[in-house]
């Protein structure tokens, strides 16, 4: 996945599409940005210059799908986090999760969330839940999995057609929802894919690259200040400030 920060307006459509797709419940009473469930969130980051030269970018943040030494996988005592060798997607298995939150502590991107409350929807809204995704209960961690339900549906469709899964067979909900086409998704290993071309642009970078986690989510910006800042520094958000 490659996200073009110069195109992101911070509209929040990706955040909403993600929540609808993955049956993420609305805020419980008393929820704050620290305790909320936002598999995808958008954070505004300033470039550090003073007014009126200051500029900011909106950074969509989700699980970065680390490649090597995936921190959350290695710390989970329950094997509730798995690395899919075929797709490179880091998946969460909520029913195995004990709620120890080691993974949340280990994740350098603060992209994991904990269910502090049982999920609740206003009366009748359970009819609008996505049938391809199970709901989770209080006490388990969860995170973005590139819309696993869509991947499974695409696999089933491909299998029904007796053909292998093609990279264009599915797109995560955030990619589909982005009005400005700021998010590109596909097979990074396919040199002919659009996402590969975008990822090889000199404007492309990864968050906290020096940690060596090899995120498969790449960002791009024409602004050198933005690239420099986000490559080296953590994206500041209220959640991060609390979790350290």
């Amino acid at each position: 996945m490659v996200i073009d920060l110069d195109r992101c307006t911070g509209c929040g459509a990706c955040v909403i599409a993600c929540a609808v797709e993955n049956n993420v419940p609305p805020a419980h009473e008393g929820t704050t940005p620290r305790t909320g469930l936002t598999w995808m969130r958008v954070v505004r980051v300033d470039d550090g210059r003073s007014f009126p030269d200051t500029r900011s970018v909106f950074v969509p943040l989700m699980c970065q799908q680390c490649d090597h030494h995936t921190p959350c996988v290695s710390v989970c005592p329950q094997n509730a986090v798995e690395y899919d060798e075929e797709t490179g997607i880091v998946t969460q298995v909520p029913v195995r999760c004990l709620g120890c939150r080691y993974c949340m502590t280990a994740c350098p991107y603060h992209a994991r969330y904990f269910n502090w409350w049982d999920p609740e929807w206003p009366a009748g809204m359970e009819q609008t839940l996505n049938p391809d995704v199970s709901t989770r209960m209080r006490g388990v961690a969860e995170k973005c999995n590139f819309c696993h339900g869509r991947l499974q549906a695409a696999r089933a469709k491909a299998a029904a057609g007796s053909r292998p899964l093609a990279p264009d067979d599915y797109q995560p909900a955030c990619v589909e929802a982005c009005p400005t086409e700021a998010i590109v998704f596909g097979d990074l290993n396919d040199p002919r894919s659009t996402v590969s071309a975008a990822a090889s642009s000199p404007d492309t970078f990864r968050l906290l690259e020096h940690l060596g986690t090899g995120p498969k989510v790449r960002y791009r910006s024409r602004s050198a200040a933005v690239r420099e800042s986000l490559t080296r520094n953590s994206v500041s958000s209220e959640k991060e400030q609390v979790h350290g």
Binding site: G12, V15, I16, P26, A27, T32, P33, G36, R41, V42
Partner: peptide
């Protein structure tokens, strides 16, 4: 809608 809490209370985007 209720789920707009994601961009308000739960993330401070707005």
């Amino acid at each position: 809608a209720t789920l707009m809490s994601k961009v308000r209370d739960e993330s401070g985007l707005y």
